[in-house]
Design a protein around this nucleic acid. Structure first.
Lengths: 268, 268
DNA sequence: TAAAATAATGTGAATTAATAACAAGAAATT
DNA sequence: AATTTCTTGTTATTAATTCACATTATTTTA
């Protein structure tokens, strides 16, 4: 649903379009003012205020007095933020993060949903273990102690894989793990699009007291390249929408708890 | 390695001291509130407001609603202190990269000069091993096979350190290593500002057929926290300016080759 | 050292910005 | 076409910010 780019704002834009424009403006301007945006978009200040509020929730920018500036985090990676199911992933991330308690050792798997968990962590008295360099670097900004697994860096997923990573895991035990998946189905359980990550996921699941799977609703009843776990191995699924009946039945059968993360049950 | 935080401010601070403290707080906290600072320093909000105003003028921070955050510029400076000697570092990086031949296994150390090497790599038929997640991620963009060491992620240097990283190195041998250093002196050889990286550097040097040290001229005849190698361990120093006489003599004595990287001898 | 000048802080009123609640209008769904 | 959801504007309320000025430290210099 893309519309032609117009430099002079002639037609009314919808919230999403405005929000994208605001980000674009910020790339060149360092700070924008509500009054200024109000004129540009020909809407009231209240409306741009609401736009900015949304963008602030996504940690894309920081509010200043009367305006906003680009968030420092934002500058790290512009690209993968405006992606698919972004809002859903943020909600999932918030709920997932809220499960974590102080002094725990947490494994966070590589993935676009899991990185949202890392961005929502509030306790600094935890140790995070991850196979994703990006997550590790972001956690460093939050001053959260982090152990990064070593190994071959896989180009498509930007996660470390292979024998080194597997060996690194050998001596570790986690209180909780948050695993990403590219598919979940009642027949084949959890699956992943990347073959090389398979072994890491299996090992992490073995070594975690509690296994949480984060997966957005677009992946319900779909299978990906390789299956890495059945329902008996996992404790909880965190997603953004209610599961279809069959999947729900299977989860109940194997005692897998379901959490639906939505605007309402997210307490930031 | 956390330092004890004193919440109760014993003696009254003057504006300069408060302002320094505010910056310090921000390095750990991402955002401070006026109300909070007012309590910490036992002054009115108006006073901290004036402090923040001063700091804002200096572009050290940005004011938010009810508080302040570290200026994005400032934050980047903290992490990427690349502004200093930037051109020199790029030259050094280009020359260093030109030494690499196809099918080699190369170790690239974490550092602001070494990251320039990774940006200049032209052969894809090499394998790079590194302790720096940032370097690994950049190499991935260039489609260069990369092995990232695992371990604890050190906040100040963004490199992995500790027993996991050391174990990971155990089975490896490199054709060449490019090591960063924060000081080089005729008396104490090469030194580094971060203690935890010490062991990694030592192990890498042991395991490399050829050891290259990249260091810019601002660090000549200076010593940093810990010394990690004498001249007999290294094969080459790549820098941006001629070495002072004494240093040069020492290098000759130990057969250390010197390359001066400048605009002219860099063929991009 | 005392007096004067300057800088720093606190106070409260005036101004401006932010929030919340609600109603009207547009878009999307059924 | 009717209903629901989303978006926007309006207004009242609350909170934050600025401003002006009085008071108190601190520094300067006679």
């Amino acid at each position: 649903m893309k519309k032609g780019k117009v430099h002079k704002q002639e037609k009314k834009l919808n919230p999403q379009e405005r929000q994208q424009e605001i980000i674009k403006l910020l790339k060149n301007k360092s700070e924008v003012k509500f009054s200024e945006l109000s004129k540009i978009f020909r809407v009231t200040e209240m409306t741009v205020r609401r736009d900015i509020e949304k963008l602030e929730e996504k940690k894309l920018l920081y509010r200043t007095v009367g305006g906003a500036i680009l968030s420092p985090i934002k500058q790290l990676d512009l690209r993968d933020r405006m992606k698919l199911m972004m809002d859903e992933k943020i909600h999932i991330g918030k709920v997932a993060a809220s499960l974590i308690k102080p002094n725990e050792a947490i494994f966070i798997d590589s993935g676009t949903t899991t990185i949202q968990i890392s961005r929502q962590l509030k306790y600094k008295e935890i140790t995070v273990i991850t196979n994703a360099p990006k997550i590790a670097l972001e956690l460093q900004e939050l001053r959260i102690p982090t152990i990064l697994l070593g190994g071959q860096l896989e180009g498509s997923t930007l996660s470390v894989v292979g024998p080194i990573a597997e060996t690194n895991l050998k001596d570790m035990k986690f209180h909780r793990a948050f695993i990403a998946a590219s598919g979940v189905s009642s027949n084949n359980g959890l699956s992943n699009a990347n073959y090389f990550e398979l072994q890491i996921k299996k090992l992490v699941i073995e070594r975690s007291q509690e296994v949480n799977v984060v997966i957005d609703s677009s992946k319900f009843e779909s299978d990906s390249l390789v299956s890495f776990a059945k329902f008996d191995k996992i404790d909880r699924i965190i997603t953004d929408r209610p599961l279809p009946q069959k999947l729900l039945n299977t989860c109940e059968k194997y005692n897998v708890e379901i959490i639906i993360a939505s605007e309402s049950n997210v307490y930031s």
